[in-house]
Design a protein around this nucleic acid. Structure first.
Lengths: 90, 90, 90, 90
DNA sequence: ACCTCGCTGTCAATGC
DNA sequence: GCATTGACAGCGAGGT
């Protein structure tokens, strides 16, 4: 049963703090939404310029993957180097 | 470096087992696809009978939500109350 | 303003028909859900048999792609080439 | 057959334009990522202050839903009424 | 360490 | 036809 009554009460101070937290999150989510809209816009413009959107997305995706793989590799190298498993380029 | 050569080999038995697993998954995905097609079909028939498809989908969606939403409500109420959500949104 | 009152009324016959349509859709969606659960189950079993689930999913995905794909790849190559991401065949 | 050779070539001008488009998208995605990280951070801080993160997320989600849902309700009510999901205003 | 859940990004379908 | 919206699969974080 849920009668809608909260199980606990919050002090006014706590409520105020909570409000701030939620407000901050919502503000940031709004920002994120705007940036997402801008990205969409760029794809839209590209499309109306004759670009193949799907391929364009694929390019961006692949480049991201490559970046990640390289990143992982370099951390890995750092570790291996630290462990003396590989030699630095002399 | 990845020369494309597998790091390990599978016995014939293991290969056979793998084949079976993949086959089973693919068979189930096929089934799922068929059911999805049937659903689409029903909406199609409904539409050609004059139903407002969008509204129909909304009904189904809402009924599903209603079935779900019946959890965590208590703690939630505390927060919502604190945020003044019990009052109309300004 | 939405006072919750429907804009139009439906005859009893129409209501009955509507009920049937919704029921049929919900039944099919239930089926679909079950099949999805079975797929998940297969992956689960595979995992507990020592399979690398992520790799397994990749296999299934690639096989599906192979079945479909053999398009757009050339546009993609064009883009990647333009960006210097891949090398032309010399 | 896909031998990896692009079907078409791009002029230098076109290549430059493509580069710009991709660069712009990547820059915006970077921004989005940063904002997402900030959001995550806020949740993290909230948690270390003793908030129930799950509930907090639920609050944010519900408030978003509330802001949205205020559409199509009229036709919808007709259908829901027919299905006995809601009662007519007596 | 595993598992669940939520989020994100992609793809297809529908309406304008 | 394009734009919007919804569905789905994949990934990652967080909790147990």
């Amino acid at each position: 049963m849920d009668d809608g009554a909260p199980a606990v009460s919050l002090s006014e101070t706590a409520r105020e703090k909570l409000r701030q937290v939620v407000a901050k999150i919502e503000r940031l989510e709004e920002e994120k939404k705007e940036v997402a809209a801008q990205i969409k816009e760029v794809y839209g413009e590209a499309k109306s310029m004759g670009y193949d959107t799907k391929a364009l997305r694929a390019v961006v995706r692949l480049r991201k993957q490559d970046r990640q793989e390289r990143e992982e590799q370099s951390i890995l190298d750092t570790y291996l180097l630290a462990l003396g498993e590989i030699e630095p380029l002399t």
